[in-house]
């Protein structure tokens, strides 16, 4: 269990949050043009990184807003949180 710093509400217990999986997966701009392979890539394939990973989280039992998080999945340490629409940090 860890404390999450919601960019809107501040530090709250992890119980209030819902994990939303890998971040920055772009919705296909022209879905009708996509091949089956590209659909599979978009829908199912995940990086599932052991180490620093970019994720989406939702403050489900709080402000209910979505935001992004950079987290080390090998030890659950949170590196950074930033709002939706903001550019991901480079490293």
């Amino acid at each position: 269990m860890f404390i999450i710093n919601c960019p809107y509400c501040g530090e709250r217990d992890q119980q209030e949050f819902k994990a939303g999986g890998e971040a920055h997966i772009e919705r296909p701009k022209q879905p009708t043009e996509l091949s089956d392979d590209e659909w599979a890539e978009y829908l199912f394939m995940r990086k599932n990184i052991k180490g620093v990973q970019f994720e989406r989280w939702n403050h489900a039992h709080g402000c209910r807003k979505w935001f992004n998080m950079v987290r080390d999945t090998s030890n659950d340490e949170i590196k950074l949180v930033y709002k939706m629409g903001e550019k991901p940090p480079l490293e």
Partner: peptide, 14 residues
């Protein structure tokens, strides 16, 4: 299971 990706072999208390 917890709903987030983790390799830490630890889960949440709740």
């Amino acid at each position: 299971t917890d709903d987030y990706v983790s390799y830490s072999q630890k889960g949440s208390h709740q």
